[in-house]
Design a protein around this nucleic acid. Structure first.
Lengths: 196, 196
DNA sequence: CCTTTTGTTGGTCGATCGACCAACAAAAGG
DNA sequence: CCTTTTGTTGGTCGATCGACCAACAAAAGG
């Protein structure tokens, strides 16, 4: 079978979670291979052998991130009974996530690599694509049940995406969960005007 | 007087503007001293002799940035006849600024150094302080003429700061000036509900 | 037990980073 | 015209970056 050869001494899933922690804390360019090597408990050669490169490791980390930290807001958006309640619950779930005591206080999608050297441009493009996907998910949810008029779909999806991204920077700057609540209230206050 | 010694061959004001361009495009950590040296047309030793260090140069660059790119939104906030019109005009001026064809499409305050290596923590603190000052300016304007009730000051100032920061990421991701306009409309739609 | 396969160890590669130094250049002071 | 002062030139410093290699280790296959 595929079990020939010397067995791996590390657990790939665990190593990936450890890599996530470091990238989450320092961003893409702020994390070096020796940071990763130390956090994952394996030599850089093993990182290359299994994960490919720093960039490929980061892409796998972001997939894990989307499947874990990204899931509660996505679920809230999906499961809300009306578009309005779904968006409201998504904003709440986002605020919960980015003020969670065990994690850095921001969203990796938004702040892991907004600027940087020319050579890391592909990583920024990759994150920009993920953010674009986020806006499209919001738009699809607004359109799903027909309770938001068609001409309002683009403005509103962009507006609530802007809110999510702004919240992330608020949290990064030390805003607490209670301090984010009125921002969400403000953001939802516009709903009736917008959906008309 | 102070004109002893060999005269400087570069114009400090021009050099600072050139440094601003590079930092603006690549962020703090994404810009190297050789990038700066090339853009400013002087050797790194001269940068150290006149500006102190990379970090001190960056702080001077941010002062210039605040006095130039930061001025139109600040003026709009100051000169608006009512709090509502002032905030509205500030959001418009911000959107103008971050989609200006001659500059990178984002606000340096927000994206020049959101994450990074441990050793550059002071730079992130510095930018966080500037962002905090932005929120306080908005709060002071809301309070100035008494047309916003006191309990609404904190939520509203945080809310509109969130909008400004979210807009910056929208622009970074390619949103055009016309696409930002409905976001501003959405953000202002909540005003009457909030101020009540 | 030898061969094949796979993973790890320890080290190195060229490039680049921010910082700074010694030697030299160019002005004003006396 | 010599001294003092200030700025520039050309180069170097130790540290670190991402990437990768050769030698060795440890398993299964036959």
């Amino acid at each position: 079978m595929g079990t020939r050869g010397r067995p791996r001494t590390f657990d790939p899933d665990l190593a990936l979670r450890q890599a996530l922690d470091v990238f989450w804390e320092r961003g893409y360019e702020g994390t070096s291979l020796s940071d990763l090597s130390a956090a994952m408990g394996i030599r850089s050669a093993s990182i290359y052998a299994y994960f490919g490169s720093k960039e490929e490791l980061f892409r796998q980390v972001m997939a894990l991130y989307g499947a874990t930290a990204g899931e509660p807001p996505r679920r809230a958006l999906r499961d809300g009974p009306t578009a309005r309640e779904a968006v409201h619950a998504m904003l709440q779930a986002t605020a919960d996530q980015i003020t969670h005591p065990e994690h850095p206080h921001y969203c990796m999608l938004i702040l892991a690599a907004p600027t940087g050297t020319v050579q890391n441009h592909p990583v920024r493009e990759f994150l920009a694509d993920l953010r674009h996907g986020m806006r499209e998910e919001i738009r699809a949810r607004l359109a799903r049940d027909g309770d938001v008029p068609e001409p309002a779909l683009d403005p509103m999806s962009r507006y609530y995406t802007t809110i999510v991204q702004g919240l992330s920077i608020q949290a990064r700057d030390g805003a607490t969960r209670p301090e984010l609540e009125p921002v969400i209230t403000c953001a939802m206050a516009a709903w009736d005007t917008l959906a008309a």
